[in-house]
Structure formats: C-alpha cells, structure tokens
Amino acid sequence: MNICVFLSAADLDERYTVPARQFAELIGRGGHTLVWGGSEAGLMKVVADGVQDSGGRLVGVSVEFLHMKARKNADEMVIAADLAERKAQLLLRADAIVVMVGGTGTLDEATEILELKKHGLHAKPVVLLNSAGFYDGLKQQMRRMDAEGFLPVPLDDLVHFADTGEEAMAYLMENAVV
C-alpha cells in the first residue's frame, strides 16, 4: 500500500516523534511505501528514517522552492512546481492518507484532502493520527460541523481519528483499496 503522510518538517518533542516513529516502522515492516513531502528535516525525517530502517520504500514529493531540503536517498523524488501540484501528486500516488501533527501546511493539506473526499473526487481512507491529543480540538469542531449539518456526508465516512499508530494501520488495512 502507498501511504501518504502529511506532517510537520519541524523538530518536535518526543511526545510527537515517538508515535511518528512507531507508525513509520509499521509502514516499513508491512512492506508499504511512504509517500510524503520529501523533506530531510524534523518530523518528516523521523518518519522517513523509520520507514526506511524497517524495510519500506520512500516516495517523496518536494516542491521547487524546498528542493534543497529533499531527502537524497529516497527511492523516488518528484519535484513539483508549487504547493498545489505537490498536493495533487501526493494524492495521486497514495492509496490512503494519514495526517500526523503539523502546522498550517499540514492543516491545509488535510482540509483539501477532506474537501475532495466530501465531493466524491477520491474515496481513499483518511486517518488523523491524534498523537498526544493534538487533534482533539479539530475532532470536536468536526463533530459540531457534522451535528449541525455542515457536512453533506457523515463525518465517519470522511475521516477516522486514531489515537495510536496501530489503530491507524488497522483502519487502513481494512479500508484501503489497493
């Protein structure tokens, strides 16, 4: 399975790096491919290292203005012209999507993927990996959107919130069409 992971390239606390590394090792040990932003920095590096060290493949999609930060030893590296092309390439190459902790860029990627799914433009499973309760507020907001009629499809059909990497991987294994 090609698992796209959206996440931060920042250097983060171990409450985020440890679960990220554990999920990365599940990807690698399962013989899956990580499809990610291609960066050799921060949490992106932690996940890429974990996948590669555990026997998985790496497919990076960097962007022209960040190409100098791209991982040199990825199995494949695509350099997109801009962020919109990058997101399109990440989705195209993925069988499933996992959103890990991140900032505004990660949130942008997550909301675009969910918007496309809401409109039926893809049916890939999407998981928000809620490490250390990072997405508790977003989960609450999305439940409110669902309850108050802002979502044309049930929230559970759009996204699955997982508290652990094991839960995230189990959901992907049950729901991804490869």
Rank of each mutant, 00 (worst) to 15 (best):
Leu91Gly: 06
Ala94His: 03
Phe65Asp: 03
Asp108Arg: 02
Arg86Phe: 12
Asp53Leu: 05
Ala81Ile: 04
Arg86Asn: 09
Thr104Asn: 12
Gly56Pro: 05
Leu66Ala: 07
Val99Ile: 14
Arg71Tyr: 02
Val99Ser: 07
Ala88Gly: 00
Val63His: 04
Val61Pro: 06
Arg86His: 13
Leu91Val: 03
Asp82Ile: 04
Leu107Pro: 00
Ala80Lys: 06
Glu64Gln: 13
Phe65Ser: 05
Gly55Asp: 03
Val61Glu: 10
Ala80Tyr: 04
Asp82Val: 03
Leu66Asn: 04
Val59Lys: 15
Val61Asn: 07
Asp82Phe: 01
Gly60Arg: 03
Gly56Ser: 08
Gly102Ala: 03
Asp75Val: 02
Met68Pro: 01
Lys72Gln: 15
Val101Ser: 13
Val98Glu: 03
Thr104Met: 13
His67Trp: 01
Lys72His: 09
Ala80Ser: 11
Ser62His: 07
Ala70Asn: 15
Gly55Leu: 07
Leu92Phe: 12
Glu85Phe: 03
Lys72Arg: 15
Lys87Gly: 11
Ala96Asp: 00
Asp108Gly: 09
Ile79Asn: 04
Leu91Pro: 00
Val61Phe: 10
Leu92Pro: 00
Val99Asn: 03
Val78Leu: 13
Asn73Phe: 11
Leu92Lys: 14
Ala74Met: 11
Met77Gly: 10
Gly56Arg: 12
Ile79Val: 15
Met77Asp: 04
Val63Asp: 01
Val59Ala: 14
Leu92Met: 14
Glu76Ser: 14
Lys72Met: 13
Leu66Glu: 09
Leu107Thr: 07
Leu107Ser: 08
Arg71Ser: 06
Gly105Glu: 12
Met77Trp: 05
Leu66Tyr: 11
Ala70Ile: 08
Leu91Phe: 04
Ala81Ser: 12
Asp95Gln: 08
